[in-house]
Nucleic acid binder design. Structure first.
Ligand code: MN
Ligand code: MN
Ligand code: MN
Ligand code: MN
Lengths: 220, 220
DNA sequence: AAATAAATTTAGGTGTGACTAAATATTACT
DNA sequence: AGTAATATTTAGTCACACCTAAATTTATTT
């Protein structure tokens, strides 16, 4: 059976391996809020499952198998559809939907998933700009760049904000860096990696790396 | 902590003790689809909890404590609000909502509960006619009678249909005995306890006890 | 009032998913 | 290359919620 716990592991592994790297025990432990020893145990179980959900070599971290990736995408689809539904239909704030979705994603039926997807018109992105896998679990490869990679003179549109932290999201909202917003880079400080960014034709603001590396844009 | 399992126990005990009787181990086991021995174990835990959630004396069955009843009502409110939401807003069929609600009821936040209650305009009854406890967990005492208690000449309005079984609910729907419908008793057969019922001025139908005892009405 | 049947509890056990403490492997540093 | 620091795994434990089989209690017959 694919338990809540397993689903959250798979989702997290998917996330940690998006860059092609393997997901380390410690990284998983940190992200899941679980002791490293517990992660080792679970990861060995996932690798021993029939069919296996992860590739695992001792001390080398894990990656998802094809089956594990499908399972992860199923949960990710639900998560992002739920977040979208909570914001669009129930009036949740965008900084507040992650936890709720992370609980609901494990219990809704296929019918529920289909109903909210239809009610929303099969949306392609969640409130944070994350792409939603379609019903066949295809995820559009989108050519987004971290804001931190831009340099003065470049213009871009915010695509997504990668964080689950309500405080962080509220801060980003206050700055005005919501998905869809246009921005121009005015300045770059090489030493502290601060960017001076003009957002939506407002006076420019200085943005530190901790923020700019979590905001993904499409460059004009 | 109040686990999913505990919440389902409390809900079921609430249901089984509605008549003032205690809930027996076997009745609980049957309703929950669990071995009687397991029920004994859980019931002892609920009685030993601090504060206790049930009154328990060996071989005598259980009843809810005040605390247990509050906890049960919180879950029942969520269950019935969810059922109503699924039918009203997401277009579920009324025979199909119980299972989904029974999973969701354990994971939604207070905020979710409040949001759907507001979206529905604080409904007082779920799609089956069951009363929904209000935000303070007050449950209106409604003077409903089982249809099986009516006799020829009496007229009534259907208040609720007490079943979770999709097949049963579809059958009741096909007969036309949905909540709100008006009916008149045309005849009663003392031997098989069949009732001949005129529903919504349609030609009368014969209804057996297995059905009539699960349909509750308010007599005119 | 015994004997039998039915309901309930006890005893012992399982799988899941966490934990801590200790052992071991990998990586980084001098 | 050897040592120290860090990451990971192993070993042993726990709570939870279920199970079966056996013992016990309560209810029903005769
Ligand atoms: Mn989750
Ligand atoms: Mn999101
Ligand atoms: Mn339930
Ligand atoms: Mn109902």
């Amino acid at each position: 059976m694919e338990t809540t716990s397993i689903q959250d592991y798979l989702k997290t592994i998917f996330d940690l391996t998006r860059d092609g790297e393997t997901a380390s025990t410690t990284a998983l432990a940190t992200r899941l809020g679980i002791a490293p020893a517990s992660v080792t145990g679970m990861v060995q179980k996932l690798a021993a499952a029939e069919p296996p959900l992860v590739h695992y070599r001792k001390h080398q971290g894990v990656t998802l198998t094809a089956g594990g990736e499908q399972a992860a995408l199923r949960v990710i689809r639900r998560h992002r559809l739920l977040e979208t539904y909570l914001v669009t239909t129930l009036g949740y704030a965008w900084d507040n939907v992650h936890e709720e979705a992370c609980r609901l994603e494990h219990v809704i039926s296929e019918e529920f998933e289909a109903k909210i997807a239809a009610a929303l018109g099969n949306p392609e992105r969640d409130p944070h700009g994350d792409p939603i896998p379609d019903a066949d679990l295809r995820l559009p490869t989108d050519p987004s760049t971290p804001l931190s990679a831009l340099r003065p003179g470049q213009g871009a549109t915010v695509l997504m904000v990668r964080s689950d932290d309500p405080a962080f999201l509220r801060h980003v909202e206050e700055i005005g860096l919501l998905p869809g917003v246009e921005l121009h880079i005015k300045n770059y400080s090489h030493f502290d990696q601060n960017l001076e960014v003009e957002i939506d034709s407002q006076p420019a603001r200085v943005i530190g790396l901790a923020i700019s590396c979590r905001i993904f844009v499409s460059v004009h």
